[in-house]
Design a protein around this nucleic acid. Structure first.
Length: 281
DNA sequence: CTACCATCCTGGTTGC
DNA sequence: TGCAACCAGGATGGTA
């Protein structure tokens, strides 16, 4: 589930619990993750102090007073929780536990096990396959309409699918793509390569806008998502089309239309929600 | 090279 | 109520 706003929220939540603290103990609890934990994880992390936390796309990066960077991806159902209980008992899907020098546990939990945890070196990070071909950060200055236009040039796929492609722009997932396309008034079925620059101007603006608002709201909590302190995000209450099939969208309602306009279709196996009145091309 | 599809998992929801 | 089928926010690797 977690897309950029959720990952950013988790990262920010982890800062007070990890920054300038030392990892005292590393406990792996599942040897059979899809991508097994690095063998040398304990050795690389125990005794190291956390210098900073950053985010790239949907990856949380933990930087240490060493060359190692701990990379965490939450997949579909992953969480990272701060647990301060003295008598904390690991739960079923608590796969990795980092205990800090103040006794706080940082718990990585992921029922579906689509997530991953690995190490990269600070210097070699950009050549790692996860980051090598990754597109611009949508909230950064190098994500703008001309760049998006260039990235979409010649693409015959739909704009919905193109925006989910992390090489075009990173950090977006199904929810925020649907929301941004709605706000930009662009059909999810529009051919990616054939959208005009002015419309891409609107789209890039709406992408940045919806992401920023979602971060402010602490992300969206559907089923699994929690902030690092266990709190729910609340941006799900602001969805305009996502998971609102059969409703009248906000824009139509404001114009006085009362016929259900939000439709659900399936594009390359995933749900797309859009307004059939306002997103015609 | 692009595009499409299946697949990795568990758990919650839906429908009979 | 019980159970089976279906569905889910992501990424990747294989095939066409």
């Amino acid at each position: 589930m977690p897309e950029l706003p959720e990952v950013e929220t988790v990262m920010r939540g982890l800062e007070p619990a990890m920054m300038n603290k030392e990892i005292k103990h590393v406990q792996k609890r599942r040897p059979d993750l899809r991508i097994p934990f690095p063998e040398n994880l304990e050795k690389a992390l125990e005794g190291r102090a956390v210098q900073s936390l950053t985010r790239r796309a949907k990856y949380i990066l933990v930087h240490f007073d060493s060359d190692d960077v701990l990379v965490i991806h939450l997949g579909m159902s992953g969480r990272v929780l701060i647990v301060s209980d003295d008598d904390y008992q690991p739960e079923k899907h608590d796969h990795l536990i980092l205990t800090m020098n103040d006794g706080t546990h940082i718990v990585y939990n992921d029922p579906r096990r689509f997530g991953m945890v690995f190490l990269v070196s600070q210097d070699g990070m950009l050549s790692h396959k996860a980051f090598k071909d990754m597109g611009s950060e949508p909230l950064g200055n190098d994500f703008n309409a001309p760049i998006l236009k260039e990235r979409l040039k010649g693409k015959k796929t739909s704009i919905k699918q193109a925006l989910l492609d992390q090489r075009v722009v990173c950090g977006l997932g199904n929810i925020y793509v649907c929301e941004a396309l709605y706000e930009a008034g662009i059909s999810p079925k529009a051919l990616a390569g054939s959208i005009s620059l002015p419309r891409l101007e609107i789209l890039t603006r709406k992408i940045k806008d919806v992401l920023a608002r979602a971060i402010k709201a602490g992300g969206s909590s559907l089923k699994d998502f929690r902030q690092a302190d266990g709190e729910l995000g609340y941006f799900q209450h602001s969805f305009l089309v996502y998971d609102r099939e059969g409703h009248v969208c906000k824009g139509c309602k404001e114009e006085g239309y009362d016929k259900p306009c939000v439709k659900r279709i399936v594009q390359s196996g995933r749900s797309t929600f859009y307004c059939m009145r306002r997103q015609k091309r």
